[in-house]
Design a protein around this nucleic acid. Structure first.
Lengths: 156, 156
DNA sequence: GTTGAAAAGTGCTGCGA
DNA sequence: TCGCAGCACTTTTCAAC
């Protein structure tokens, strides 16, 4: 068993397949097979195995948010009144669709969120009306992203 | 021209197609066509248009980082010695593969990064050896994510 | 712009090694 | 466990509306 990659015995081939598909999920299996010099069926078997193991979450179409009118990305450091209220906060924040990421974390903030909005007016509305209104949230600190310079997945 | 969505005249159909594919990029065009009650050809034409407009960045396979041994996500507030050194910092940080996002931003930090590591030892190595060694970086503040509770794309 | 169907290519499955 | 080959399905194209 090769144990280089985590709790699962992913071998080199598995990792190479993932690496290719993580960059471009629409590349056909047959082409991956050619690149890695195995048969198409093998790719299929490996992918199925990795799906069953829960390694693969699914595939997403990446869109350019700015081109569909979502121009502003912001990060939000959240101070909760009590740390124990985190799970309540999660449930409430899930209802706000502008919240695209939420982390429970160490450091000065109890929670840390990433939000995407159409414009400054929209951001202000989300911050003032939606998020500040949630119970259990003491205050927040906003960091606005002026430019997203890097955006990629981990490389295995 | 419907101008509800950005600088481009995306109509309702375009937005519905994107909404479906953003959640699951592997759903076949023919099935989308059935759902939206148009022909497969139409979906194809719309997708091509949106690709040419740069609205669609591509499709990615989402993997579960924890299952391949990347257990730690952290955010890094970066203080640069001078704000003007940002583009230098971008170039240097691009070389560090653990950095998956980098934003130029307002607020106390000059830049803000998201990094993904295997374990605490790996994180310490990236912070101490890779990032602190970069020139132009004064100091950093690390926020470690203990749990990622929300992870999704914007809904149109 | 949309349709529907035909042609080309891809994904899936079972059998054999 | 892997690879090959045939069948089903999807994507892509195109003439016609």
């Amino acid at each position: 068993m090769e144990k280089k990659y985590a709790n699962y015995d992913l071998d080199n081939l598995d990792v190479q397949i993932l690496s290719i598909l993580m960059e471009n999920a629409s590349i056909p299996y047959t082409e991956i097979a050619k690149k890695l010099i195995v048969s198409g069926g093998t790719i299929h078997v490996r992918m199925k195995k990795m799906e069953e193991l829960g390694i693969i979450r699914g595939s997403h179409l990446m869109i350019n948010p700015q081109k569909v009118g979502y121009d502003i990305t912001a990060f939000l450091g959240i101070y909760l009144e009590k740390g124990s209220q985190y799970s309540d906060a999660v449930d409430q924040l899930k209802e706000i669709k502008e919240v695209v990421e939420l982390h429970y974390c160490t450091g000065q903030y109890s929670a840390f969120a990433k939000i995407v909005c159409r414009d400054t007016a929209h951001l202000r509305k989300v911050l003032n009306e939606d998020i500040q209104a949630l119970k259990g949230i003491q205050r927040t600190e906003t960091i606005i992203s002026l430019e997203e310079s890097i955006k990629r997945q981990i490389t295995l």
